[in-house]
Amino acid sequence: MAQILFFYFGGMTVLSAIVAVATPHLIYSALSLLVTFIHIAGLYILLHAEFIAAIQIIIYAGAILVLYLFVLMLFHSKQEPRYLHRQLPVGIFLGLVLLGMMVLAAFRSEILGQIGTMNDKLGHTKAIGMALYTDFVFPFEMASLILLVAMFGAILLAGRTVRRKSDGSA
């Protein structure tokens, strides 16, 4: 049963990811990315990582992709193909680099068979909390610092246009 579900979730993840890249229609592309995210959450549930699955849907599907869709909806449909074709060589190059890195990582390391410090008695959510706030507290805080800097950057970029507008009218 778990194996059938794994092949369903894995297959749908790959299939919808391919559709997301291949379709020329921006909204369909975003929607198939949504399907990808939900099926990845399904894979997490098969791994008994329920907390990660819920967070995957809340953050990626519920927040980030909605904001993508927000922008895509305001695009003019006739400008889409031209805009996409200009990025094609760069996209192919970056994709190949990423694929190469993943293949290298898969053959060089032992990610697949590693046994962590996860304790089944604690429950999954508690175990993640314990690991994040004890063993990995420094990387965790670093990540939040990087996100904070990105947030400042976004506010600074968005705030600048408002200031310029009010200068012009004054």
């Binding site: 909204i27 959450a41 907390f51 599907a61 519920g62 909605v66 869709l69 909806m73 959510t125």
Partner: peptide, 24 residues
């Protein structure tokens, strides 16, 4: 399920899609 409340929040966050896409 052991993540009951997160499960509800996860699906509630998907509700925005229907509204957004219906409008578009």
């Amino acid at each position: 399920i052991n993540i009951g409340i997160l499960y509800i929040l996860a699906f509630a966050s998907l509700g925005a899609y229907g509204v957004l896409l219906g409008g578009w």
